[in-house]
Design a protein around this nucleic acid. Structure first.
Ligand SMILES: [Mn+2]
Ligand SMILES: [Mn+2]
Length: 328
DNA sequence: GTCTCAC
DNA sequence: GTGAGACAACGCCAC
DNA sequence: GTGGCG
């Protein structure tokens, strides 16, 4: 496999090239690869850099031989597609070569669930019924995508990528921070430990590691209940509204990613914003103290990693049970 | 970015 | 050999 | 079935 166009500018403001993106993923690989392991990938590609067009890709027609793929049923396409799984550095760099700036891994894995009877390990193809019965329907996490919908005066949802507006960044993140703190308190009340990361923009991602025993329907219901309860406690600050215009001025607690095939920009993903930020794990103590979420970028993240290591290294070891009854 | 097909 | 053109997701929900 | 949404 050949790398091409290494000098093509991918981040004009910083002058970062495609070669810089590939170099970033080569260096981050030891931290990132464990979090991608065994998870189907939804590719999101920017072959002409962050100011160019982007597109999603799931089906890989004829990938290099070193790329692991899995045949997975696509209900809408009524056919099997071949999805990439990134378990090694070569595959990661191939993805970067394709123009993947972010990595989007599923919340479920293809590996068999231990001690599960009646399952057909490795069968994800042929029908919706097959994949619904498979390990891919049993996520490792309940996820909360915490998205501030605060905008500078005179702008609106259509211009919500206000990453260039420091005032908006600060206000939006402060709102997301408060929302995450409320979520953290509620989860603590349930005896659940969650892992936190910046999105790389102004939001936050909270992951609750769970045993692979709950279906997406169950994790979705759990997250929806939590989000609705929190929104009821803080109706002026939080929303779960489906319509963007009904979210303006609030923090959108998005529980809807808890479905098979949905993704978020992964931990240690480079984000397609001018500052070339990175999605970085943070501690709850750091959240309480506050920070600038855009401080971690392609240029600065390794300083932090060398100091604190991978704060999510043990995330799968802490798989928890979730109560399915409506809590409180 | 990759691939195929026409010239 | 080279350039043009096609192509690269999808599930859920409201209406 | 189409459109909004992430
Ligand atoms: Mn979101
Ligand atoms: Mn988000």
């Amino acid at each position: 496999m050949a790398f091409t166009n290494l000098d093509k500018v991918f981040f004009p403001e910083l002058g970062l090239t495609k070669g810089d993106v590939i170099a970033y993923y080569r260096r981050i690989a030891p931290y990132l690869l464990p979090h991608l392991a065994d998870r189907p990938l939804t590719l999101r590609r920017w072959p002409n850099g962050i100011v160019g067009e982007d597109f999603f890709q799931k089906d890989l027609d004829d990938p290099p031989a070193f790329v692991r793929t899995e045949r997975i049923w696509s209900e809408e396409g009524r056919r099997d597609i071949r999805m990439a799984i990134c378990n090694d550095e070569a595959t990661l760099l191939w993805l970067a070569q394709l123009g993947c700036i972010e990595m989007h891994a599923w919340f479920s894995r293809v590996t068999p669930v231990a001690r599960r009877r009646g399952a057909r390990p490795g069968a994800f193809s042929g029908s919706e019924a097959t994949i619904a019965k498979s390990a891919l329907n049993l996520p490792d996490f309940v996820v909360f995508d915490i998205d501030p919908f605060l905008f500078p005066e005179g702008t609106g949802p259509t211009r919500r990528h206000g990453e260039l507006d420091p005032d908006y960044t600060r206000k939006g993140f402060e709102a997301a921070r408060q929302a995450a703190l409320w979520l953290g308190e509620a989860l603590e009340g349930l005896g659940l430990r969650a892992f936190l990361k910046t999105s790389g923009k102004t939001g936050l991602h909270a992951f609750i590691p769970i045993v692979r025993r709950y279906t997406f329907a169950q994790t979705h219901a759990f997250a929806k209940t939590m989000a609705a309860w929190l929104t009821g406690q803080h109706p002026d600050a939080l929303t779960t509204a489906w319509s963007v215009r009904d979210r303006v001025g609030k923090v959108f607690l998005d529980y809807n990613q808890n479905l098979r095939g949905k993704t978020l920009a992964s931990i240690y993903s480079l984000r397609p914003v001018p500052q070339a930020t990175v999605s970085v794990p943070v501690t709850w103590d750091e959240l309480r103290a506050g920070f600038d979420p855009l401080r971690w970028t392609i240029a600065t993240v390794f300083d932090r990693l060398e100091r604190v290591g991978d704060l999510w290294a043990d995330i799968l070891a802490g798989a928890q049970e979730i109560a399915l009854r409506a809590e409180r």
